[in-house]
Design a binder for these strands. Structure first.
Lengths: 218, 218
DNA sequence: CATTTCTCTGTACGGCGTACAATAATGATA
DNA sequence: TATCATTATTGTACGCCGTACAGAGAAATG
């Protein structure tokens, strides 16, 4: 049972969850710092080490919370598998873009939390439902995760401090030498929208389509 | 013409290119630091500010060099478009995984260098060759970049300090509750290979396939 | 020559993660 | 109840980081 309610020493004034919750509200382009979170909690920085072994633990916890915030429940239900995957993907993308610096976290901390496990299992379920064999389903699930996170972080990097609208406008104004880069110049308007949800949905659709298409006999 | 050979003041002892070259050899899990690179060059840290405005500039330069290191020339030639894209993608993945911390760079610094432009143009060319209209080609090109970078950074994050073989073994040994996560448990062996080139090729193939498949009539 | 311009250095500031010892609060024990 | 064992929190410190600023010295210009 290990009831921890009766421990010696002073009462704890915080909890790991509380710390993570506060940190979740502190994305500003960087991952919230230990010192910053501590300050917000009116506590000296080293106090946090009572609840978290190190900064990496905070990062892992944040990763899991972000996955949860995108609501893994949309991955189950009676809608079609495509729709469910797309909905979760779009939602996760939004969650990550809402908090500047959140996307980059996934490339520093492994996704080994409980929510990651749930999301993984449900993605697998969706792909099995789509008719994939287990091996392909597993690969497809990972591919989807890769795509969502890759897209979100590249968009976050491109966005930097400006808004989506500003970025689109800036890209459209870019001067491209049409002799050296004819195709790029000709598709400038499309390239300007690379970071929109529409483009995200387009590429996700392509990926899903390819995942359920059997490999071409080479 | 702006010949800069006759400038006042002392001779420069370094060049931006030299700095970037040294930095390229210093990935060790983090992006090389200004201070670290300076030390390697036997120079005080602030000296580097003569050649680079700030750390972000170093990061952008490194991003471009990494793209170049993957050899954009494989994107042209008389092999088929699939093959050319796959070759560059696999090569870029390798370049990024060879240097721990390199992949994460792409999510901090925008890809706006000269090599990025060349790679973009050639990717577009490959997709046009595949029969895509310009808009789809542009979207497909971006999707490929997203996928390669996403995959490389997730793999880098998962890899951490260990080797690929060790990671595969560790994943295989993972204990998954088969009641809560039946599909995950059943596909453990496949999940163990998520970070291999094979999985990378599989998902890239899926993405390419989907990119050249016209959207299904909803 | 003196002047201008430019590179490089010394020094410093404010941030970061976190190690370590001391302090104070609490529950368990005698 | 008095003591002891345990624990949360703090003060302080170390070694990193990026980089701002002022000054010394080198080189080309007049």
């Amino acid at each position: 049972m290990e009831d921890e309610t009766a421990r010696r020493g002073p009462k704890r004034s915080l909890s790991a969850d509380q710390i993570v919750t506060v940190a979740m509200g502190m994305f500003d382009g960087e991952t919230p710092s230990i010192r910053g979170v501590a300050a917000r909690l009116n506590v000296r920085p080293n106090t946090l080490y009572t609840y978290l072994p190190d900064r990496a633990a905070l990062e892992r916890a944040l990763v899991d919370r972000l996955l949860a915030e995108a609501d893994p429940d949309v991955l189950v239900g009676r809608r079609g598998w495509r729709r469910r995957i797309e909905d979760y993907a779009v939602s996760l993308r939004e969650v990550l873009l809402e908090r500047r610096g959140a996307a980059a976290l996934f490339h520093a901390a492994p996704m080994d939390g409980p929510t990651a496990a749930i999301v993984g299992e449900r993605l697998l379920g969706a792909f099995v439902e789509a008719g994939l064999d287990p091996v392909s389903a597993s690969r497809a699930a990972y591919a989807v995760i890769v795509h969502v996170l890759g897209s979100a972080s590249l968009t976050a990097a491109d966005l930097g401090d400006t808004t989506e609208a500003a970025l689109i406008e800036a890209r459209r104004q870019a001067v491209i030498d049409p002799d050296a880069f004819p195709l790029t110049a000709a598709t400038l308007d499309t390239a300007a929208t690379w970071n929109t949800v529409d483009q995200f949905r387009w590429s996700l659709r392509a990926l899903l389509e390819g995942c359920v298409t059997p490999p071409r006999p080479s």
